[in-house]
Amino acid sequence: TTVHVNGVTYHFPNPEEAKKFVDRVVKEAGLTVEVKGNQWDVE
């Protein structure tokens, strides 16, 4: 699973890890998340 955060790419072994990361980032920074298949874009 690939997560893009403001142009930076993070790779995770599974969607659960990616979701935990995204949830944390979104809570801390108040960002928006767009999910496209296995790819997350966070802005």
Rank of each mutant, 00 (worst) to 15 (best):
N38A: 05
D41I: 15
K20H: 09
T32D: 13
K27D: 07
D41H: 15
K27C: 07
R24F: 13
V3S: 00
K19I: 07
T32R: 05
N38V: 04
E17L: 05
D41E: 14
T1C: 06
T1E: 04
T2N: 04
E16I: 05
H11T: 08
E16M: 06
V5D: 00
E43I: 15
H11E: 06
K36W: 15
F12P: 01
K27S: 10
P15Y: 15
F21W: 06
K19A: 09
H4L: 14
N14W: 01
P13C: 07
T32W: 04
Y10M: 05
Y10G: 01
V26L: 14
V33G: 11
V5G: 00
K20E: 13
G30K: 03
A29D: 11
K20Y: 05
E17Y: 02
V8C: 11
K27T: 10
V22F: 12
E34H: 06
V42Y: 09
H4E: 09
E17M: 06
N38C: 15
H4V: 14
V3Q: 00
N6L: 10
A18K: 01
P15G: 08
R24C: 15
K27M: 13
E34F: 03
K27W: 08
A18P: 00
V25T: 05
V5F: 13
D41C: 15
Q39D: 14
W40A: 09
T1Y: 13
K27E: 08
P15D: 12
R24T: 14
V5P: 00
P15W: 14
E17K: 01
Q39L: 09
V25K: 03
T1F: 13
V25W: 10
V25D: 03
V25M: 12
H11A: 04
V33W: 11
W40V: 08
L31N: 10
V42H: 09
Y10T: 02
E43S: 12
R24I: 12
T2E: 06
N6T: 02
P15T: 11
K36C: 15
E34N: 10
A18R: 00
P15M: 13
N38T: 06
V8P: 00
V22Y: 12
P13E: 11
E28H: 05
D23E: 09
N14Q: 02
P15N: 11
D23V: 02
G7L: 01
V35T: 07
K20A: 12
G30R: 00
T9E: 11
W40P: 08
V5R: 02
V35D: 14
V42E: 10
V42C: 07
V26E: 08
A29G: 12
T2F: 12
E28R: 02
V8F: 08
V33M: 04
N14D: 11
L31Q: 08
W40K: 05
L31P: 06
A29F: 15
T2P: 02
T1W: 15
T1R: 03
T32C: 07
V5C: 03
V42M: 08
D41L: 15
H11R: 04
E16F: 06
N6G: 09
V8R: 07
G7C: 09
V26S: 11
D41M: 14
K20V: 07
D23I: 03
T2I: 13
V26N: 09
N38K: 03
L31D: 10
K27Q: 11
V3C: 03
Q39M: 09
V35I: 15
H4T: 14
V3N: 00
E43F: 13
T2W: 13
D41P: 08
V5E: 01
F12M: 01
Q39N: 09
N14I: 02
E17Q: 05
D23Y: 03
P13F: 07
G7H: 03
F12H: 00
A18H: 01
G7M: 02
E16T: 06
V22P: 01
V25F: 12
H11D: 04
N6P: 01
E43N: 13
E43Q: 13
N14F: 03
F21D: 01
W40S: 08
E16D: 10
N38M: 03
L31S: 11
V8I: 11
F12R: 00
T9C: 10
P13Y: 06
K36D: 15
H11K: 05
N14V: 01
E17N: 02
N38R: 01
T1L: 10
N38E: 15
T1H: 07
E16W: 11
A18W: 02
W40G: 09
F12E: 00
P15F: 14
G7Q: 02
V26A: 11
G30L: 07
G30P: 05
E43K: 13
R24V: 10
L31R: 02
V42W: 08
R24Q: 13
F21V: 01
